[in-house]
Design a protein around this nucleic acid. Structure first.
Length: 202
DNA sequence: AATCCTTCCAACCGCGATTCG
DNA sequence: GCGAATCGCGGTTGGAAGGAT
């Protein structure tokens, strides 16, 4: 087959990045853009695999990263988004400018989980822990109460529409708020943008 | 001052989806 | 159309830093 391996594992560094490696990576991406991660380490003169370079850039070196502590507003937004999307950290990160999925995931595991537990809320289900502790049964057929009653959670199911759309560049694609989920051969078309905007208007 | 414990986060690992030859 | 390489994501881990004893 035609492809070469992604990296020569025997000649790649692992572990913490040095300042020099950071500088090389930044300089290369400034000059050439992100491009192909596989070929980047060699082109940049780095003894790292492309995967490691990508992670380092996205999570630490990108100039648009906010860093620093999360505000209460960000915490609440993360909680709301998590109640809707679950552990879809990349989707959640897409709604928090300057934050990465890894950063949000870490923040969730170290701070927000504890915060919710202190409130008596199960961080996995976003439901009261008290009910579960005292054996309260979920009404089997009762309609689920929406977690955020003022949010429109209607999903629209439609046939694939991608063919109708003009081909987007990867960058445009990542900017798009519309998520298309395959569902038993059909597509679940979920307008995340509208959903989340309605959350933020609260 | 030394040791142990806890917290935090950068980085790694493995897997599914996508792309490419 | 097939299989391998690559990408991107979520889960997990290792170790540095700070606090407690």
């Amino acid at each position: 087959m035609g492809r070469s391996p992604c990296c020569e594992k025997a000649h790649t560094n692992k572990g913490a990045w040095t300042k020099e490696e950071d500088e090389r990576l930044i300089a290369h991406i400034r000059a050439h853009g992100e491009g192909c991660w596989r070929s980047l380490p060699k082109a940049a003169g780095l003894l790292r695999c492309g995967k490691s370079c990508r992670l380092r850039w996205i999570n630490y070196l990108r100039p648009d990263l906010k860093r620093g502590n999360f505000s209460d507003e960000e915490d609440e937004l993360i909680i709301k988004l998590h109640s809707l999307l679950g552990n879809k950290w990349s989707l959640i990160a897409g709604r928090l400018p300057g934050r990465t999925d890894n950063e949000i995931k870490n923040h969730w595991n170290t701070h927000i989980r504890r915060k919710l537990l202190n409130r008596g809320v199960d961080p996995a289900t976003h439901r009261s822990i008290a009910g579960a502790l005292f054996g309260a049964k979920e009404p089997e057929k009762a309609p689920m109460k929406p977690l955020c009653p003022d949010v429109n959670l209607d999903l629209c199911i439609s046939l694939p529409f991608q063919e109708q759309q003009k081909k987007k560049s990867p960058a445009e694609e990542s900017m798009s708020q519309r998520e298309d989920w395959k569902c038993g051969g059909q597509f679940l078309s979920l307008d995340c943008g509208a959903l989340i905007r309605s959350l933020e208007m609260k």
